[in-house]
Design a protein around this nucleic acid. Structure first.
Lengths: 183, 183
DNA sequence: TCTGACTTTGACCTGTAAGTCAAAAAAATG
DNA sequence: CATTTTTTTGACTTACAGGTCAAAGTCAGA
């Protein structure tokens, strides 16, 4: 149902995020999104120029939420170990509360490595930047190749978002990560 | 190019696996597959009744390769710890050599939880069976909830297959898993 | 070489999804 | 109110993908 607090554009974005997180790009039609947002299809084109731009907007939003959550908490203070653990906790927290967004990110993050066209460069750079920031935090306390390690850790948590609901609890993920870091 | 050692049907399957592992179901067209297999589109329908059946066949093949690899090695003998480690090593080995197949499995395994129709039941059961067998091997030496843990471990390794090539080495994955199991 | 089974394809049909557009409805402005 | 601007939609075009089919090519055996 069209939200009253948010504007119409926001409702559409929200609908897009919902749709793209449960099916992949090619399986989602503009009709689908319109139906979820309780809006007619041409209205989407009033706010967004094309399907791919709408997709990018939805992705961007989900991604920035993740980024805010992760770095909002962990970048303040403290020893490295503490930092790393709090970063991972933020990630796990995000998994708990924003499963939909994380699913979208995980499912589609490979798209911009295969998709060509310079308009994807921006989004790709952002994602790489995120990984690097995670790397910076983790590298100081982990022996192995840091950026690869960071990507792996991000992936470990993220991958659980791809599972059907209720098949792996966030607690299990947490356990595994903490074990990984505990030495 | 159409393979001479394999028959035409095999070439098509191979092409399908390649296509479906780099893009997701809705983004792959029968034309794409035909082009990769160096064959005209209607020929695909001579060997496979529909796109979804072709997809299932490709998935099945990739999945059985994984299953063979993993259980072929680890089910022979030995102590639990040894068993579990060899199982994971098989998995990692598979990741090393059959990145394409694993990518297909990881990217699309959620499909049959959302897709309806009884013809998906079979493939779903097989996947669940696989997870359970992994659980059986791992549960004997791990404290936490075993089946969830098994799924998580399978996922940890599998998820790396979703990364673009060369961004996380199998060694990194191995390191993480061994660390997880080492206690 | 003729015949019949198998394999391959060009041409076509059909449905559906992306995207357009002119006009209607609603809101804002004077 | 009247008019202008913004928002919304029904009806349409266009392109392309899944799927069909009849006919053409290939090849083995009688």
């Amino acid at each position: 149902m069209t939200n009253r607090v948010n504007g119409v554009k926001e409702s559409i974005l929200e609908a897009a995020r919902e749709a793209f997180s449960s099916k992949s790009y090619g399986d989602v039609s503009m009709e689908d999104i319109a139906k979820i947002a309780n809006v007619k299809k041409p209205l989407i084109y009033y706010y967004f120029p094309s399907k791919s731009e709408l997709f990018k907007a939805a992705w961007d939003e989900a991604f920035h939420k993740l980024e805010d959550k992760v770095f909002g908490v962990s970048e303040n203070d403290g020893k490295y170990v503490k930092k790393a653990k709090s970063l991972l906790r933020s990630y796990i927290d995000f998994l708990r509360n924003e499963r939909q967004s994380l699913r979208l990110i995980e499912r589609e993050k490979n798209r911009f490595y295969s998709e060509k066209g310079s308009s994807w460069e921006h989004i790709k750079k952002e994602y790489d930047g995120f990984v690097n920031r995670v790397a910076d935090v983790l590298s100081s306390e982990v022996d192995s190749n840091s950026s690869e390690y960071a990507r792996a850790v991000a992936d470990i948590v993220g991958s659980s978002a791809l599972l059907p609901d209720g098949q792996m609890s966030p607690d299990t993920v947490e356990l595994i990560i903490i074990k990984s870091l505990a030495k």
